[in-house]
């Protein structure tokens, strides 16, 4: 893989066991905050957010014996950088249960950074209907927000420098062992 971290520049932040513990804790927090889990929709942002939401749903099933709804929320066609970007983001089909009115949609992503992706996700969700609540879950919150956005569930808070790159690797999406890496230039 092209952007696989080279061992000298990459600092390991989380391994597979740490990721699993973090997501199980996030699942517990979601259960605690949402007494009626039937209202919850875990909406993953492609591609790793979708896999993470699938794993969180798996932990909720394990803990509470209930299947929460999951969905896919494409943000590419809702981004705010039309006309300034050099590369065209690849669009994927969204898939959310309808109607969305009265539901609690939890946006799930791998890394929370500027908050612009989350803003686009909220915009996309509102085109499906008007959920009662939108919450946000991220495996890693690395700070440096550019918008007034805050996560409700965080796997790991990670203070970073802007020059640093945070890379999440998951078996299902990247065909590599589960890991979070920090890459410094």
């Amino acid at each position: 893989m092209k952007d696989r971290p080279s061992p000298s520049a990459a600092v390991p932040i989380m391994d597979a066991a740490a990721i699993q513990r973090a997501l199980r804790r996030v699942a517990h927090e979601i259960i605690e905050r949402n007494p009626d889990l039937k209202l919850v929709v875990l909406a993953g942002i492609p591609s790793r957010g979708v896999e993470i939401s699938r794993r969180i749903a798996g932990f909720i099933r394990e803990i509470e014996k209930i299947d929460v709804d999951t969905g896919i929320i494409d943000v590419a066609m809702h981004r705010d950088d039309v006309g300034t970007r050099a590369d065209l983001p690849i669009v994927r089909a969204s898939n959310l249960p309808t109607p969305l009115g009265g539901r609690t949609v939890i946006i799930v992503d791998d890394v929370l950074y500027t908050g612009r992706t989350v803003r686009a996700a909220m915009d996309a969700i509102s085109s499906f209907g008007r959920p009662a609540l939108i919450q946000l879950a991220a495996l890693v919150d690395r700070g440096h927000r550019e918008l007034p956005i805050r996560a409700d569930y965080v796997g790991k808070n990670l203070p970073t420098a802007t020059r640093e790159q945070i890379q999440v690797r998951l078996r299902e999406t990247d065909h590599e062992p589960d890991a979070v890496w920090s890459l410094r230039e």
Partner: peptide
């Protein structure tokens, strides 16, 4: 890419800011 845009036609609001 058409798959993604066909899905937009099934939403309550069939318009995106792309």
């Amino acid at each position: 890419t058409t798959d993604a845009f066909k899905q937009v036609g099934t939403r309550e609001i069939k318009k995106v800011p792309a």
